[in-house]
Amino acid sequence: MKKQEKPLDKRFKIAHREALIGVALVIINFIIWYGFAYGLGSAKVEDYTYILGLPAWFFYSCIAGTLFMIILVILALKFLFKEVPFEEKEGGAE
């Protein structure tokens, strides 16, 4: 006889989905940072352009990229994440 598997709790499915969203946000952050830091930063120092006294590659990768990611995380939390109760359902196993 095969043992019947219990269906996965809905909370774990939600947590798994939200973990994948978190990983996607990290990958987006790395791509933005890497793209600006090594894309604009690979020029000769004499050819750098400056924004607010900072090299453009640093400003876009570290300052603007961070602000963009903060906004992206806020939007993800507001629209993609769900409130999940931590308590067991009523009438569950004791």
Rank of each mutant, 00 (worst) to 15 (best):
I71E: 12
K82A: 07
Y48C: 02
L80V: 09
I27N: 04
W33T: 13
A56W: 15
Y38V: 05
F30Q: 05
M69S: 14
Y50G: 09
Y60V: 09
E5D: 07
G22S: 05
F81Q: 08
L54F: 15
C62L: 06
F81K: 07
V73W: 13
F86A: 11
K13Q: 01
R17F: 02
L72R: 10
P85G: 05
L54S: 11
E83F: 12
A93G: 15
G35V: 03
F86C: 05
W57E: 10
R11P: 00
F86L: 13
Q4P: 03
K44P: 08
E18G: 01
E46L: 01
L75E: 09
G53C: 08
A56S: 15
P55W: 03
T66M: 13
S42M: 03
A24T: 10
G91K: 08
F36W: 13
G39A: 13
Y34A: 11
L54D: 07
A64N: 07
G91P: 08
F30E: 06
A76G: 14
E87L: 06
A56Y: 13
E46M: 05
W33A: 14
Y50Q: 10
F79S: 13
I74M: 13
K10T: 07
K13T: 03
W57G: 00
G53M: 08
A24I: 04
G65F: 07
Y34S: 08
F58S: 10
I31Q: 04
V26P: 00
A56Q: 15
F79A: 10
K89H: 14
L8F: 00
K78P: 03
M1F: 04
L40F: 12
K82T: 09
E5I: 02
A24F: 05
I63G: 05
L77F: 12
V23P: 01
I27H: 00
K10V: 09
E46W: 01
I71Y: 15
L20C: 06
K2F: 07
L54W: 15
E83L: 05
I27V: 15
K6C: 01
A64Q: 12
A64I: 12
E94R: 13
G65C: 07
V23K: 02
P85T: 10
C62Y: 09
M69C: 14
E46K: 03
V26S: 11
E94H: 11
Q4V: 13
A19D: 02
I21E: 06
E87V: 12
A56M: 14
P7K: 05
T49R: 09
P7Y: 01
F86Q: 12
F81M: 14
K78N: 09
I14C: 00
T66I: 05
I51M: 11
A37G: 04
Y50K: 06
A64D: 07
L40T: 10
G41C: 13
F68V: 15
K3W: 04
G91I: 04
A15V: 00
S61K: 07
P85E: 09
I63E: 10
E5W: 02
E46F: 01
A56H: 15
E88T: 10
S42F: 03
L67Q: 11
L8S: 01
E18F: 01
L77M: 14
R17V: 00
A56L: 15
G92F: 14
Q4F: 04
I71D: 12
L40H: 04
Y60S: 10
A43N: 08
A43I: 06
G39F: 08
D9P: 01
L20T: 03
F86Y: 12
A15R: 06
N29P: 00
